[in-house]
Design a protein around this nucleic acid. Structure first.
Lengths: 204, 204
DNA sequence: CGCCAATTGAACACTCGTGTTCAATTGGCG
DNA sequence: CGCCAATTGAACACGAGTGTTCAATTGGCG
């Protein structure tokens, strides 16, 4: 992952936009060149192929989001509050940057870097919450729970992108439902899910 | 939706298989012809184009599943038991017929017929359960709940297809978590989610 | 100013897929 | 047996995209 020159940066940004809007298979070299404001020849001399470009873009997005969420979690110790906030961070960001949302919604499950972004932090938090008695579930269910959370967040992002719900509604609903599923009492689940949501820290 | 002659039936079956395995954009006419054991010319004289073929296949699948699930529900009045069974029907079937599972997982959200299959029955059951006091959620949350259920089932199907969990585990976990999210007491949620699951009735 | 690396954009040769046409073949049925 | 509709498979004419090459142009910098 060499650092990028200005032309490569423009290509990556344009690629991100096009992938988000159309999906990988609908983006060709000419589109990319035009979107980046660059000649076709320049594309070939700056990237290897679409596939590695996609991996690079997805990896960058995953790393950036993971870092910002982790940073925000430094000041939170309660696993349930972290989970409620994590869920809402993703949903709010999808609303604030619909290209980001569309990209996540399309590709979150399709490449390891993005899957990891979703479940990495959550896994340890779930286990912490379980051993501290905050959650009540059986440990064998961990994978099913992670899946429900990831899928649920993606579904909510879709809802928000389509305009069926606001990010606040979708975010707090999803967080509340997940917490209830994990054994948090309804009233507390609701409080955690509707608490003030901090600004996501900026990356380095 | 004219009824199909034998050649068309073979084409639809082959298309179903290929769509499930590769996704729509990776299936071309020649592949389809070979998979159906038919000449390329025969394809063109039996179907209009890939898109309408896909719609037909998806519509047929949705109608068949919807009918079978509805039939099974005739003998169940408890909305929570219906929901637990509905969730597990989908997950078990994905296991028993992995092509079916792959098809659903890829396309469940991409065409109206399949979306309807997922949420049609569930909507009325959720509202019944709410007004009968079986569930505790706020009515504005209905859409978020439907999304969580649909997404969760799809995620579980993926887990089962990948071999990360058995259908029994994924099915009962998902049903249990959803019921808990809806306010069913944990112990009862578990009982409903692990109850004997009837055979899915055959279509007409 | 003049150098040099990067960019430009046209031209090529290629692959793969679509959709059409059509003469020849097949096979089920009266 | 012979008819006729369906199937076959090859041949066409396209269009779209890939990846390469390269002479000409640009523009930042010493």
């Amino acid at each position: 992952m060499e650092s990028l020159n200005p032309t490569q940066r423009r290509l990556h940004q344009a690629a991100f936009r096009l992938f988000a809007e159309r999906g990988t298979s609908q983006v060709n070299i000419l589109d990319l060149a035009q979107a980046a404001g660059v000649a076709r020849g320049t594309v070939y001399s700056n990237i290897d192929n679409m596939e590695s470009l996609f991996e690079a873009v997805a990896g960058q997005l995953a790393a950036e989001m993971h870092e910002r969420v982790s940073k925000s979690f430094n000041s939170l110790s309660d696993p349930a509050q972290r989970l409620a906030n994590g869920i809402r961070f993703f949903i709010r960001r999808a609303h604030e940057d619909s290209q980001w949302g569309a990209f996540i919604h399309k590709f979150a499950m399709s490449t390891p870097a993005l899957r990891e972004m979703f479940s990495g932090q959550a896994t340890t938090d779930l286990l912490n919450g379980l051993s501290s008695g905050r959650y009540t579930f059986r440990q064998e269910q961990l994978l099913s729970i992670l899946t429900l959370i990831s899928s649920g967040v993606l579904g909510s992002i879709f809802l928000v992108l389509e305009g069926h719900r606001t990010w606040r509604e979708a975010g707090s609903d999803t967080a509340e439902l997940v917490l209830r599923a994990l054994g948090i009492p309804p009233q507390e689940a609701r409080a955690l899910a509707t608490s003030e949501l901090p600004v996501l820290p900026s990356p380095d």
